[in-house]
Each structure stands twice: as structure tokens, then as C-alpha cells.
């Protein structure tokens, strides 16, 4: 069986279990919508929405992702399934990529809901091209999903548990959020692609780097 098939099998299993329990995705989306509402309530009369939307978008998606990342391995830990997953012939890389692919779905949903909620609550009439937002958010969500999967595993195996997660994740994700917010801000302000492409390329580079580092470290962490 190819690694790609294994990745698909693991991601599909995770998503099926995730949508049946539903708690994590609902909590992440509720948090993002509530944060957008509170931001609009407190800032709406002070600033123009399109000037602050990018920062709020990335801040909200970042914190929603971190809150969900701590539960990435809940299903594996609940009845000791992780031991059996690791004892299967599947490569560690495929396990990591399968888990990260499953993590990508809730993070992408949160990003989409947050973008929609910000546009709605801040009454941004022309928030920029949806395709351009997607081109910026996609590498961002890939990076967040990969980092969340890796740090979710580390926090699981630390006596500090979930409290360790933000301390590990936030410093590692500063470049991702910085370039993401920069690129998104230019999309909200209707800048030409020439001004957006630079941070967008950097964003893709960071996302690919996070996936690669995550896969390597995952193998190191799970090889006893």
C-alpha cells in the first residue's frame, strides 16, 4: 500500500470519528465567531474594518487552532489505540501526514468561518478576492495543522499536558502568522498581486518547512 493511501485512510478515520463526536470543531468555530463578534463590538466604531481585519483573522485562527490541537490525539489515547497504530507497518511519516491532513479540515473550516464573520460583523463591503484569500489562508492552515499535530503529540507526552501547548506553538508560529497577516492585509486593502506574492511565497515556504520538520520530529518522538 502506498504512503498516500495510508495517509488517506488515517485522515478519513480521524475525520469520521471527529464528525461523530463533533465537540472539537464546534468549539473551535464557536470561539472564532464569538471572537469576531467581540472584536467588532469593541473596535467597530473606532477603526475601519479592512484596516484591522487581517490581524484579527490570523489571531483568531491561531488561537482556535491551538485550542483544537490539544485534542488531536484524544482518539488514540482513549483506549490505547496509538500503540496499535505505531505497531502497524505504516511509516511514521504517513501517520503524521494523515493526522495533519485530518487536522487541516477543522482549521480550514475555522479560517473560512472567521473570514466570513469578520466581513459580516465589520461590514466590509469589498473584502478582496475570495481566491486570493484562499491562496493566502491555505498555506497558513497547512502550517497550523502540521504544527498543531506535532505539538499536540508533544504536549500529550509531557507531564505539563495542554498547558505546554501555547508555550511551544506560539513562538514557532510567529513567522507564519506575521507573513500571513501581511499578505491578508494587502488582500483586504485591494493591493495588486505583485505586493501580495512576496509574503504569499514565504508563507508557502514556511508551511512546507513546518510539514517537513513535523514529519521528521514525529518519527523521532515515536521511535522508542
Amino acid at each position: 500500500m502506498t504512503s498516500l493511501r495510508w495517509i488517506g485512510v488515517i485522515a478519513w478515520k480521524d475525520l469520521r470519528a471527529e464528525f461523530r463526536s463533533g465537540g472539537r470543531i464546534a468549539a473551535m468555530i464557536s470561539f472564532s465567531v464569538l471572537a469576531c463578534f467581540l472584536f467588532s463590538f469593541s473596535l467597530g466604531s473606532l477603526v475601519a474594518g479592512r484596516d484591522v481585519a487581517a490581524g484579527l483573522l490570523w489571531l483568531t485562527v491561531l488561537f482556535a487552532s491551538i485550542s483544537g490541537a490539544g485534542r488531536t490525539f484524544d482518539a488514540e489515547e482513549e483506549d490505547g489505540a496509538f500503540r496499535h497504530l505505531l505497531l502497524s507497518p505504516v511509516s511514521r511519516h504517513a501517520i503524521f501526514l494523515g493526522k495533519a491532513a485530518a487536522n487541516l479540515v477543522p482549521v480550514t473550516l475555522v479560517a473560512a468561518f472567521t473570514l466570513f464573520a469578520l466581513t459580516l460583523f465589520f461590514r466590509i463591503a469589498a473584502p478582496g478576492s475570495v481566491a486570493l484569500h484562499a491562496a493566502i489562508l491555505l498555506p497558513g492552515t497547512i502550517g497550523l495543522a502540521a504544527a498543531g499535530t506535532l505539538f499536540g503529540l508533544i504536549s500529550r507526552h509531557s507531564s505539563l499536558g495542554d498547558s505546554l501547548l501555547p508555550a511551544l506553538t506560539l513562538p514557532a508560529l510567529v513567522p507564519l502568522v506575521f507573513f500571513g497577516a501581511t499578505a491578508s492585509s494587502r488582500v483586504f486593502l485591494d493591493r495588486p498581486w505583485a505586493e501580495i506574492s512576496g509574503p504569499a511565497r514565504l508563507l508557502w515556504g514556511i508551511a512546507i518547512g513546518l510539514v517537513a520538520v513535523g514529519a521528521l520530529l514525529f518519527r523521532y518522538l515515536t521511535d522508542d
Partner: peptide, 22 residues
């Protein structure tokens, strides 16, 4: 510890591990 995914049915659990083992 039985190592089953609690949200999946028995058949889904077994099909999952069957897929992992090819």
C-alpha cells in the same frame, strides 16, 4: 487496553486496521 477507536463501529475499526496492514 483494547486500542479501539470508540467513535467507530466494530467493523469500521477492523477495516481501518485491515487497511493499515494491507
Amino acid at each position: 487496553r483494547t486500542g479501539l477507536y470508540t467513535k467507530l463501529t466494530v467493523t469500521e475499526n477492523l477495516l481501518f486496521f485491515a487497511a493499515l496492514h494491507g
